[in-house]
């Protein structure tokens, strides 16, 4: 079909404005096509590898396995909410959720304070070697999580790593291993969060600082009273990202498990779901995964509401 057939478009196929849609509005159609074209690579992959699996897992989570005999074939039967019931009273799941919540309460604020401090330092007028430091802070994020965790594992191992030899703490033992993981996570993501806050700081109009200086604000006051309130949105954004990341903690504990005797196969909710799936309890793993996704959504939502209230006050 062509766009310049004015006759065919002029009689019935009129747009809302009464003008012939086909002939008069080619740029809009092209634009729409461009949008679809540009979005489709993402949309198709997102649909195939995100939405479809989630729906599949959601459906699976309502099924249970049935079979007859010591090695009988498995059949799926409708189980209603029984997988969810099982999950909610699974002491290992409850313990793992408690563990990541404790982790989040300490690690997320600590990491965000570090990220914010770095961002403000980089943004200060007196900072030197900004490009060098910006890159240095960010580099850990470029290291694959697994590699980072392995390297930290070496550092934490007594007799092998300087960290473990200098500080008399059993980093891989029962008491400390959660905080060893927190150190790794903070090391990895502080720079990344710093960059989000820093780019927001860069976008602030310099005139505001000018005005503040004329009004007699020192660097400390500028940072506290002007910069932080102005980049509130990116601080909240990094907060939401961090909460999601905390609940989905997996790679670091999974890597450290091979050197620490203190990380169980159900240490975090994600590890628990992984262990269940490895044991062919797919339906149960699906239910746990779904609960985890819901909890993440709820927590993120609550956090956003709380921070909005803070913003309004």
């Amino acid at each position: 079909m062509s766009l310049d057939t004015t006759e065919s478009g002029s009689n019935h196929a009129s747009g809302p404005s009464g003008r012939p849609a086909r002939s008069e509005n080619p740029s809009r159609r092209a634009e729409r096509r461009a949008i679809v074209g540009l979005l489709s690579p993402f949309a198709i992959l997102f649909l195939l590898f995100y939405i479809v699996p989630i729906c599949y897992a959601f459906v699976r989570s309502f099924f249970v396995t049935t079979r007859k005999g010591a090695f009988g074939p498995a059949e799926d039967a409708w189980g209603g909410l029984s997988n969810y019931g099982q999950a909610l009273k699974d002491p290992a799941l409850i313990a793992s959720v408690g563990r990541v919540l404790l982790f989040g309460f300490i690690q997320v604020p600590a990491m965000l304070v570090i990220a914010l401090t770095f961002a403000l330092l980089l943004d200060s007028r007196t900072a030197r070697f900004k490009r060098f430091f910006r890159l240095t802070y960010f580099v850990p994020y470029a290291v694959p999580v697994v590699i980072g965790a392995i390297v930290w594992g070496f550092l934490f191992t007594p007799g092998l790593g300087p960290v473990a030899d200098l500080i008399p703490i059993d980093f891989l033992g029962n008491t400390w291993v959660l905080w060893s993981i927190a150190i790794i996570v903070t090391w990895t993501y502080a720079g990344y969060n710093m960059l989000i806050m820093y780019s927001n700081l860069q976008a602030i109009d310099q005139d505001i600082y000018e005005a503040a200086r004329i009004d007699g604000a020192n660097a400390w006051q500028t940072a506290l009273r002007i910069k932080i309130p102005l980049i509130r949105d990116s601080v909240i954004l990094t907060g939401v990202f961090s909460i999601i990341g905390t609940l989905q903690l997996f790679a670091e504990p999974q890597v450290l498990r091979s050197i620490s005797t203190s990380i169980s196969s159900t240490y975090t909710p994600n590890l628990l779901a992984f262990t269940a799936a490895s044991g062919n309890a797919y339906n149960y793993a699906a239910a746990v995964s779904f609960l985890l996704a819901m909890a993440t959504a709820v927590l993120s939502f609550v956090f956003l509401r709380l921070t909005q209230r803070w913003e309004n006050s």
Binding site: G173, N174, T261, S262, S264, S265, T266, T275, S278, A281
Partner: peptide, 22 residues
């Protein structure tokens, strides 16, 4: 048993707790 993956995981978790003194 046909669910050794789970048995091993559970044993290892328990052994870890024992080594940790809990």
């Amino acid at each position: 048993s046909p669910t050794m993956t789970q048995t091993y995981a559970s044993l290892a978790d328990g052994f870890g707790a024992a080594l940790g003194g809990d």
